[in-house]
Design a protein around this nucleic acid. Structure first.
Length: 439
RNA sequence: CGGGGCGUAGCGCAGUCUGGUAGCGCACCUGGUUUGGGACCAGGGGGCCGCAGGUUCAAAUCCUGCCGCCCCGACCA
């Protein structure tokens, strides 16, 4: 993509409404534009990141056996009356009426709708386990939206819903999501720690929040340093096997948010093993048994021939929040530092002197080669001073920068810079592609 | 929802106290000189001063009401 033909409105100065670093950088790097409190447009560069994150979430959901679908943003109030939540939900739910004055709502979550779908089609335990998910926009009319996309009112969420014949198989479904989440956040370059969360009326130990450590996090968290060193399950992990050992390993160490913090238990850890930090919640999984299947009549025939209410769980990942969370965890003075896995472009190619025939020729040649090698390239062909080019390229945080100017064009050399480390090297133009592919 | 703050050009701000026909920096446009870390010169475009009402010869400025946005707390992917 040629920058001169792209739409990337970067800002040199920070809009004053942005207080935290990820919000400032997202506005300055041209990722988003605020349209209203807690509601944002995703500009082209931001859209690419959002899609990249969604894709990783999708791949790991699919790997774990979940099946993607898509439910609408608007829902009928009637479904929510069945579960009792239409009255219970309160002002966070955006309620609207259509032209026939029918009560509708912009979905804040989809338990009712997925339960309705399930009960319409599934009547045997043989169809289970089943886990259906979608990646869709949600609306929760937060009292106080803040921190940019980290707490928007409209946000993109992956929500998965599992259906099982009994509590034990629901536990296995829960564990599959637990492992899928460990892998997902790892691939996004994040250290996410599962922490036991409020489990609601069902009780038990099947509710975890996945929290990443970042100094600007919203809540205080406490955990054991051992959690940072635990291995992440590999890509070829067998999701049909018993995942208990992995889940047990992760849940046996101390980890709690401040509302569940047990000072006494925490202090039993040796001092150097204790971590007190700020955290950002990026995922939440829980088992809620028959909470919706009973009132909504979602039951199936079991192997015993009798009808059973299905046991359900739901599993959320804040996809749009993750964009902000990743930036919180990965930036420096100059701007964003995207992990390779979700960067909007892999390479920023900087032409230091557009209009100079030799430099243009060398840059074009490099551009073609990089693209042919399968790399996504943002080619800065703007007629600007080098300083401005470097500053905005650092701001948008692409993993690699390739710099070519008149001197390089003459000597046949280019400079490459790794954004994350700042390491630079000069090498022959002919070997740039191989060098980048080598990592 | 309680407390605090802010709405003036795309962005950052001054001007408001003490009313007199709207300004600065960056960005943008034209021309020229420049070009390896946010250039310089000259010229130029762009404003219902958040909205409505009031006071006044005259309102960005004073008064009243409303709207929007941000920050701090109670709640949440």
């Amino acid at each position: 993509m040629r920058l001169s033909r792209y739409f990337l409105p970067t800002l040199r100065e920070t809009p004053k409404e942005a207080e935290i670093v990820s919000h400032r950088l997202m506005l300055r790097a041209g990722l988003i534009r605020q349209q209203s409190a807690g509601i944002y447009s995703w500009l082209p560069l931001g859209k690419r990141v959002l899609e990249n994150i969604a894709q990783i979430v999708r791949e790991e959901q699919d790997r774990s056996g979940a099946i993607e679908m898509l439910m609408p943003t608007l829902q009928s109030a009637d479904l929510w009356r069945e579960s009792g939540r239409y009255e219970a939900y309160g002002k966070e739910m955006l309620r609207i009426q259509d032209r026939h004055e029918r009560d509708m709502l912009y979905g804040p979550t989809n338990e009712e709708m997925i339960t309705d779908i399930f009960r319409a089609y599934v009547s045997s335990y043989r169809a289970m386990p089943l886990n259906l998910y979608h990646i869709q926009w949600k609306f929760r009319d937060e009292v106080r939206p803040r921190f940019g996309v980290m707490r928007g009112r409209e946000f993109l969420m992956k929500d998965a819903y599992s259906f099982d014949i009994d509590r034990e198989s629901a536990r296995a479904a829960y564990q599959r999501m637990f492992v899928a989440y460990l892998r997902t956040f790892e691939r996004l370059g994040l250290k996410a720690i599962p922490m036991r969360a409020e489990s609601g009326p069902i009780g038990g130990d099947m509710s975890h929040e996945f929290i990443i450590l970042a100094s600007t996090g919203e809540s205080e968290v406490y955990c054991s340093r051992d959690l940072l060193d635990l291995p992440i399950p590999p890509a070829d992990i067998d999701f049909r096997g018993d995942l208990s050992p992995i889940v047990d390993a992760w849940t046996s160490h101390y980890a709690a948010t401040d509302e569940k913090h047990d000072v006494e238990a925490f202090n039993k850890l040796p001092e150097e093993r204790r971590i007190t930090a700020r955290g950002i919640e990026v995922g939440h999984i829980f088992y809620f048994g028959t909470k919706y299947s009973e009132p909504m009549g979602a039951k199936v025939a079991g192997p015993d021939g009798a009808e059973h209410f299905v046991h359900m769980g739901s599993y959320g990942v804040g996809v749009s929040r993750l964009v902000g969370a990743v930036i919180e965890a990965s930036h420096d003075e100059a701007g964003i530092i995207w992990p390779d896995s979700i960067a909007p472009f892999a390479v920023g190619l900087i032409n230091l002197k557009p209009g100079d025939a030799a430099t243009d020729a060398a840059a074009e040649k490099l551009y073609d080669r990089l693209v042919k090698a399968g790399l996504s390239v943002l080619y800065d062909d703007l007629d600007q001073r080098a300083g401005a080019k470097f500053a905005s390229m650092d701001l948008i945080g692409l993993p690699w920068q390739v710099i070519i100017g008149p001197k390089g064009a003459a000597s046949g050399e280019a400079e490459i810079k790794r954004r994350a480390t700042g390491a630079r090297e000069t090498l022959p133009i002919d070997s740039v592609v191989d060098r980048l592919l080598a990592g």
